[in-house]
Design a protein around this nucleic acid. Structure first.
Lengths: 150, 150
DNA sequence: AGCCTTTAGATCGTATACGATATAATCGTA
DNA sequence: TACGATTATATCGTATACGATCTAAAGGCT
């Protein structure tokens, strides 16, 4: 086994493909979200709020794998854009409840079409995507456990 | 079909899983790379240079899907850290050749072990990972084509 | 009640990302 | 050979990410 095979070749690295896949998906979303004035991450927050409203900052963080250091500035931008409101929870003053404004709620109508575009962009059937997603989630679980242990 | 099924549920969104997968891998790498003083992205650049040296900025960009607006500042940081050198190509003064310093080249030795840790973190066999990677690359290709067309 | 710990957000500094734009070098072609 | 188009990199502004640290509120325990 020579030097070449001992080192991680870029073309063999799964991490790079995950990086590239995420980037590619991000790039499909951007032009679809631009007319709504939403970034990719902001869209993911909106999807969460369309499911359940209100959500605390940490509840949003649990869904997206992010913490207040990333979320607080972004949520302030979304508040300034008139998409959401931020209010201290009366029952627990540590928590900040995030709610959709009327304007934010009305964007929900555009989301179905965006999701359809994404499905189509993958060139896969719904069944294929579900199988792939299941595989991906198993891998995520393993990697997260490894990160927490190590 | 009610409102709920018309909207993209967060738990069904593949994009979120790709986002989470990338994040999880990133988090496994970080502590492994910290002793080397490398960020995740800087590591990916180093891997490229361990394969071929020198590389131009755009050659690195083609491998990582990034452009000079991201790479130039990062490469300057790597230069300041003594990992690489940046020199204009004498044959084409538009190009900037990136080369490893002796210190940068010597880090190569640590890369094999890091790669092994990552493989292990996935909890998958090499064959399983290759199959998954092939699937992922197919999906990336489709999504990129969709992004370029649309 | 007093006090220690935990929890939820916020802040700061640094490092990606990327659209838009600028600049200089090279190329193509009339 | 002049000159518009293209190419390679750099710069700027804004938006993520995240480790480290701070503050305030809540919880637990004596």
């Amino acid at each position: 086994m020579d030097d070449k095979t001992m080192q991680p070749l870029l073309q063999h690295m799964l991490c790079l493909d995950l990086y590239a896949a995420n980037q590619a998906v991000h790039r499909v979303y951007k032009p679809l979200l631009a007319p709504l004035g939403l970034t990719y991450l902001q869209y993911l927050v909106m999807v969460g709020l369309w499911e359940k409203d209100p959500l605390s900052v940490s509840e949003i963080g649990a869904r997206l794998g992010l913490e207040s250091n990333t979320l607080t500035p972004m949520l302030k931008r979304m508040e300034a854009a008139g998409l959401i409101t931020r209010r201290r929870d009366p029952g627990d003053e540590r928590r900040v409840n995030i709610s959709l404004t009327t304007e934010g709620d009305e964007m929900r109508a555009a989301a179905g079409e965006i999701q359809r575009c994404l499905m189509e962009a993958t060139g896969r059937s719904e069944a294929e995507l579900l199988r792939f997603q299941e595989d991906l989630r198993g891998l995520i679980g393993n990697v997260r456990r490894a990160a927490d242990d190590g």
